[in-house]
Write a protein that binds this DNA or RNA. Structure first.
Length: 431
RNA sequence: GGAGAGAUGGUCGAGCUGGUUGAAGGCACCGGUCUUGAAAACCGGCGAAGUGCAAGCUUCCGGGGGUUCGAAUCCCCCUCUCUCCGCCA
C-alpha cells in the first residue's frame, strides 16, 4: 500500500515511479475525490461535534427539571443527517481504499524502467560446464537414476505434479536440510507455518486483490465470503509477513530474521511451456524462504545480506549461476527492489530463477499494519519487510542433475549434501 | 460436532443497572528528585488513527449491523480464544 500523504504531496514523483513499471497513472480524479472526501469528513465531524455537545447537555437539562422534548426532536433530525453523510463517506472511503490497494509499490531510485528485457546481470559465478559427450535432459536423468516418477505424479495430481522417489526424495530432503542448517547457523529463526491462510494474509503480502486467481482456494471462492475463505500459500513469504500483522514491535526486537520451509502451491494457469517439462514449473514445489523485519534505515543492508545468503547457498552446491537485478516492470507488485539468482540449466540453454530476493520497503507493512516503536520515541512507524528464497529446490534439483552429470549418465552429489545421503558421492543409473 | 465463558490501550486488568469512562488501577516505558553509580522510594508524563497551518475536532473498547437524542455498556450476526462433553489422530 502506498502512503496517501505521499501521493498528495509528491504526486509527480509517485507517477514517475509507477511509470517505470509501465503504468500510466493519472491521479487527477483520485485527488479531486480525496479533496471532496476530506471536505465531507470535516462537515460530518462538525455535525458530530454538535451532537456530542448537545447530548451531554440533555441529562443536565433533565436534572434541572426542564422539558427536553424539543431538543430531542432536533437531535433526531441531526442524527439522521449524520447517518446519511456517514453512508456517503463510507462509500468514498471504500472506493479510495480499493484503488490504493490496487497500486503496486514504487521501484527504488536506482531500479531501471521497463520489463524483463531490461534486467541486468550483475554477477556471474562459475562457468557453463563443458561436456565432452552429449549431455542428457534432467527428465531423462531423473528417470534413469530412479529419482523422480513423473508418470505416477501425473496419475495422482495431474499435469504439473511429480513424485520424488527413493534417492530422489533423499536428495530433495538433503537440499532442504542444507538450507535449514545454514539459516540456523546464520541466526535465522526456523518456523513451520500453516499452509492454509486467510484472506487478510494474502492482502498484507500484496497478492490480493489482484492475484487472487493465482492461488488455490480451499472452501469458498474469493468474493463469496472473502473473510472466511482459505487458500494454499503460494510461498512461505505469505505466511511470514503476517506473523506480526497488526502488531507494534519494539525497536530493540529488530531486525527479526525468520525462515520457513513449506511446499508452495500455485495454479500457474496457462503458463505451461514445452521447454519447461519436468520440474521447472509445477503446481507444488518445495522452498525455504527467508524473511526479515527491519528498521527503515537498515533494510538496504538487510537486502544485501539476503542476496549474499542466497548466493552462498548456490555457490556451496558448486553450481554455475548468475545474479540479475530486475527492472521495475519485472519486480512483483509489492516489491521496490528485486534481485534474482538464476542457475544454469544446460538443456534449456538458459538460466532459471532459484531465488528471488526483494525489499518491499514499507509497502507490506502498510497493508498489514506492522509497525515498531523507536526507543524513547512517541510515534509508531511502519517497518520494512524483506524476503528471499533460500532456496527453491525445483530448479536446483534439475541443475544439479544436468550440471553434475557424467558420460555414463550418473550424477555427482554436491559435497555439502553427502552427509544427508549416507556419505554417498555419486548416483548411478539403476538399469 | 454439542454446551458454556470470554475478547477493553505496549501489556495485565476494572468498567458492562446506557449520559464528565477514551476508558480506573498495576506493570512496562520516558523525564525528574534522591544517590559516588545503580536499585528502591517519591514526583510528573505516557494509546492509536483521521482531519486541520494551528487551537482543536472526530473516530476507535475483536469485526459487522441494529436500538437510542446518546452505546465499551442493550439486541442480532460473524470471527477468534478458553473450559467441559463427544469424536478422531
Amino acid at each position: 500500500m502506498l502512503d496517501i500523504q505521499k501521493i498528495r504531496k509528491e504526486t509527480d514523483q509517485v507517477v514517475r515511479g509507477l511509470a517505470k513499471r509501465g503504468l500510466k497513472i493519472d491521479f487527477t480524479d483520485f485527488l479531486a475525490k480525496d479533496e471532496k472526501r476530506r471536505q465531507l469528513i470535516s462537515d460530518t465531524e462538525a455535525l458530530k461535534a454538535k451532537r456530542n455537545k448537545t447530548s451531554a447537555e440533555i441529562p443536565k437539562l433533565k436534572k434541572a427539571g426542564q422539558d427536553v422534548s424539543e431538543v430531542l426532536k432536533e437531535m433526531k433530525t441531526l442524527s439522521d443527517e449524520i447517518k446519511e453523510a456517514d453512508e456517503v463517506l463510507a462509500a468514498l472511503n471504500e472506493e479510495q481504499a480499493e484503488y490504493l490497494a490496487g497500486l503496486p509499490n514504487i521501484p527504488a531510485e536506482d531500479v531501471v524502467a521497463g520489463g524483463k528485457e531490461n534486467n541486468q546481470v550483475i554477477k556471474v559465478v562459475g562457468k557453463k560446464p563443458d561436456f565432452d559427450f552429449e549431455p542428457r535432459h534432467h527428465v531423462d536423468l531423473a528417470e534413469q537414476l530412479g529419482l523422480i516418477d513423473y508418470a505416477r505424479g501425473a496419475k495422482l495430481g495431474g499435469n504439473g505434479y511429480w513424485i520424488y522417489t527413493g534417492l530422489g526424495a533423499q536428495l530433495e530432503w538433503a537440499l532442504l536440510n542444507y538450507f535449514i542448517e545454514t539459516h540456523i547457523k546464520d541466526g535465522y529463526k526456523m518456523m513451520l507455518v500453516p499452509h492454509s491462510l486467510n484472506y487478510a494474509c494474502g492482502f498484507a503480502a500484496g497478492q490480493f486483490p489482484k492475484f487472487a486467481d493465482d492461488v488455490y482456494w480451499l472452501d469458498t471462492l474469493p468474493g463469496d465470503d472473502r473473510d472466511n475463505s482459505h487458500f494454499l500459500l503460494p510461498t512461505a513469504e505469505t505466511a511470514l509477513v503476517n506473523l506480526h500483522r497488526d502488531e507494534i514491535l519494539a525497536e530493540s526486537e529488530l531486525p527479526k530474521k525468520y525462515f520457513a520451509y513449506t511446499p508452495c502451491y500455485r495454479k500457474e494457469a496457462g503458463s505451461y511451456r514445452a521447454e519447461e517439462r519436468g520440474m521447472i514449473r509445477g503446481h507444488q514445489f518445495n522452498k525455504v524462504e527467508m524473511f526479515q523485519y527491519t528498521r527503515p534505515e537498515d533494510s538496504e543492508a538487510a537486502f544485501q545480506e539476503l542476496v549474499d545468503k542466497a548466493i552462498a547457498l548456490v555457490e556451496g552446491l558448486g553450481l554455475h549461476f548468475q545474479v540479475s537485478k530486475l527492472a521495475a516492470g519485472d519486480c512483483s507488485a509489492s516489491m521496490g527492489r528485486t534481485n534474482d539468482i538464476e542457475v544454469w540449466i544446460p538443456s534449456m540453454n538458459d538460466y532459471k530463477e532459484v531465488s528471488s530476493a526483494s525489499n518491499a520497503y514499507d509497502y507490506q507493512a502498510r497493508r498489514g499494519n506492522i509497525r515498531f516503536r523507536r526507543d524513547g520515541g512517541k510515534r509508531n512507524e511502519f517497518l520494512h519487510t524483506l524476503n528471499a528464497s533460500g532456496l527453491a529446490t525445483s530448479r536446483i534439483f534439475p541443475a544439479i542433475l544436468e550440471q553434475n552429470q557424467l558420460a555414463d549418465g550418473s550424477v555427482l552429489i554436491p559435497e555439502v549434501l553427502r552427509k544427508w545421503m549416507g556419505g554417498m558421492e555419486i548416483i548411478k543409473p539403476v538399469k
